[in-house]
């Protein structure tokens, strides 16, 4: 029982952190046709933003979270300004933007190294309430806080996407770019909204996952890979699919770490992803939900 609860808590908290990242990647691809590898450095910058605020301004948890979210949203703005707006109508846009966003990761890493040095920084703890004892398993406050925060934010994102006018416009753009233009949807403005929302979610993820990754110039690469894998597994463009995929990958990671060994986590995860994509090339959500065709 204790093992089961521990694995479950671990699953949910990993799913929370990675899910926040994956949704940004998935939304960006399906609405803008941009596979945003710079989501990694967005995560990295947001971690430093939260750390800087926590050490230089105030360790107030709310302030630290906001600092991470704002840094993430701002980085998203920079990415859309560099890797989308200037090149969106050029030939081979998917490959060009892929290259540029990959380059942004490398440039960003060098900036972080030069400004802050190679040493990892510790973001102050955000959740300071007591641990919870569930069936004899002690759940640390950062785990509970992570799960609850991510659940609330993901639900809010889903409602925004389904109910609000700007969410509706993003979905219109995903399904029929010309039809969207005919009802007055601006590609540029939608791009900025999507990238700032994605960046903010990545920023929140960076603050929530800080117990695992800290803030260091290279800490973004593993979260980026997990986010990409979840977005692919969930079917690019499907928010419910991404959430389900985050839970599946979280369970695989937690289960593997517990019963097989932490060093085998990537083996089981990739085996799972390859298996699912062989059987269902459009991922879990690909048939449930609207997705952009890859060749469009």
């Amino acid at each position: 029982m204790e093992t089961l609860v521990a694995v479950l808590v671990s699953t949910l908290s990993l799913a929370a952190g990675y899910g926040l990242l994956a949704i940004g990647i998935s939304l960006t691809w399906s609405s803008l046709g941009l596979l945003n590898l710079a989501h990694g450095i967005t995560f990295g910058f947001a971690g430093y933003g939260a750390w800087w605020f926590g050490t230089e301004v105030s360790a107030n948890p709310v302030g630290v979270v906001i600092a991470g979210v704002v840094t993430g949203a701002f980085t998203g703005l920079v990415v859309v300004a560099v890797a989308f707006l200037p090149i969106k109508r050029q030939e081979n846009f998917p490959v060009r933007s892929l290259t540029i966003t990959l380059a942004l990761n490398l440039v960003g890493t060098q900036i972080l190294l030069r400004v802050f040095g190679p040493k990892a920084k510790n973001i102050p703890s955000v959740f300071t309430f007591d641990s919870i004892n569930l069936f004899g398993t002690v759940i640390l406050p950062d785990r509970t806080g992570m799960i609850v925060t991510a659940a609330v934010v993901l639900l809010a994102t889903l409602i925004w996407f389904r109910r609000s006018r700007s969410g509706l416009r993003v979905r219109a753009l995903m399904q029929n770019p010309e039809g969207a233009a005919l009802v007055g949807v601006s590609l540029n403005r939608t791009a900025v909204v999507v990238m700032m929302v994605s960046g903010a979610l990545a920023g929140l993820s960076a603050v929530l996952l800080q117990e695992i990754f800290f803030a260091s110039p290279y800490s973004w690469s593993t979260p980026l890979i997990k986010g990409l894998v979840i977005a692919l597994l969930g079917g690019l463009g499907s928010i419910p699919g991404a959430l389900l995929a985050a839970l599946v990958l979280g369970a695989t990671e937690a289960g593997t770490a517990r019963f097989v060994g932490g060093q085998y986590v990537l083996y089981t995860q990739f085996a799972l992803v390859v298996g699912v994509l062989l059987a269902r090339p459009r991922g879990i959500g690909g048939l449930l939900d609207e997705v952009r065709e890859a060749d469009e």
Binding site: R89, L168, R171, A172, Q175, N176, E178, G179, A180, A181, L182, V183, G184, V185, S186, L187, D289, E290
Partner: peptide, 24 residues
């Protein structure tokens, strides 16, 4: 490039067939 601005200024094109959003 200018379509969304022209549409927003009050010109509605109801196209041949339909330019609808199939998943909505």
């Amino acid at each position: 490039r200018r379509t969304h601005r022209i549409a927003a200024s009050g010109v509605a094109l109801l196209p041949q067939g339909d330019a609808i959003f199939p998943g909505l």
